[in-house]
């Protein structure tokens, strides 16, 4: 409950636009209430900046409850801040104390260029999704939902993977800027379910190819991603995707092709 307020110093990355040089600027955040969220603290700082006639700090946010995946701050070197399993918007000021200096940077990775200040462009994730992150189910053609029972364990595991909020913290945390956790989560979610089988091989091949093409790095199995992930998506899914990928590569190369119509 509301305890005494305190002051912190922020060192915030300011950058006017894409490709422009950026730098750190210090701001004092005064009268911080421990029950404030980190973003609410930034709101207050921004209102003060506005009153002083300065441009407020641009930062991405929307739902403010850890589900939309918009917020994306690297706080003191850790994507989404000091705690595990939460997004930036779920970081509360009670994690800090009077006199702390907090360094706030954008999510960094070449495929996530900075748009302004702390806002980055993560559209690369959409492109990966468009490459194959779906099950083709034309509207109106679905069988009854209970026609194919799915074991609870399988459905639950698929749900574990499906929880990804597409925030990109995995990329930001990975020393290689690898998008493996994000891609693996989607590949596993769809690949675990019976509905996802027909497109399973093409999906993993296409998504991985797109991921590589967009300039994300490779995985060296360091598991920083799953530690930074606000949904604590397990790197087990990366192993699963590696296996799926290997199988798909060999099946694609050696599986017999359906005879061409009109054959001989």
């Amino acid at each position: 409950m509301s305890a005494a307020t305190f002051n912190v110093t922020l060192r915030v990355w300011r950058q006017a636009g894409p490709g422009q040089p950026g730098r750190f600027v210090e701001y004092a955040a005064r009268g911080v209430n421990p029950d404030m969220s980190f973003l609410e603290m930034l709101d207050v700082v921004n209102d003060e900046l506005t009153l002083r006639g300065e441009e407020p700090i641009a930062f991405a946010h929307d739902c403010r409850e850890g589900i939309c995946g918009t917020c994306s701050l690297t706080i003191d070197g850790k994507p989404h801040g000091p705690h595990g399993g939460v997004a930036s918007c779920q970081t509360y000021m009670r994690s800090y104390k009077d006199g702390d200096t907090i360094v706030v940077e954008p999510f960094r990775a070449r495929p996530f260029p900075v748009i302004k200040d702390l806002v980055t462009d993560r559209s690369a994730f959409d492109q990966i999704q468009q490459a194959g992150g779906f099950i083709t189910a034309r509207t109106g053609s679905a069988p009854d939902a209970n026609a194919n029972p799915i074991a609870k364990e399988v459905a639950d595991l698929a749900m574990d993977a499906a929880q990804c909020i597409g925030c990109g913290a995995c990329v930001a945390a990975c020393k290689n800027s690898s998008a493996m956790l994000f891609v693996a989560a989607k590949v596993s979610h769809l690949g675990l379910l019976p509905q996802g089988q027909p497109e399973r091989d093409r999906r993993v091949l296409a998504m991985v190819r797109t991921m590589d093409g967009l300039g994300f790095g490779g995985c060296t199995n360091q598991y920083e991603c799953s530690a930074a992930c606000p949904k604590l998506i397990s790197h087990d899914f990366i192993a699963r995707m590696n296996r799926d990928y290997a199988k798909a590569v060999f099946r694609a190369a050696f599986r017999p092709l359906p005879a061409d119509a009109g054959g001989e």
Binding site: A142, P143, A145, P149, D156, M159, A162
Partner: peptide
């Protein structure tokens, strides 16, 4: 039906 076909992982029983 449509959502299940798309792969929405609704909660299930054992």
């Amino acid at each position: 039906d449509q959502c299940v076909a798309q792969g929405v992982p609704f909660a299930r029983e054992y």
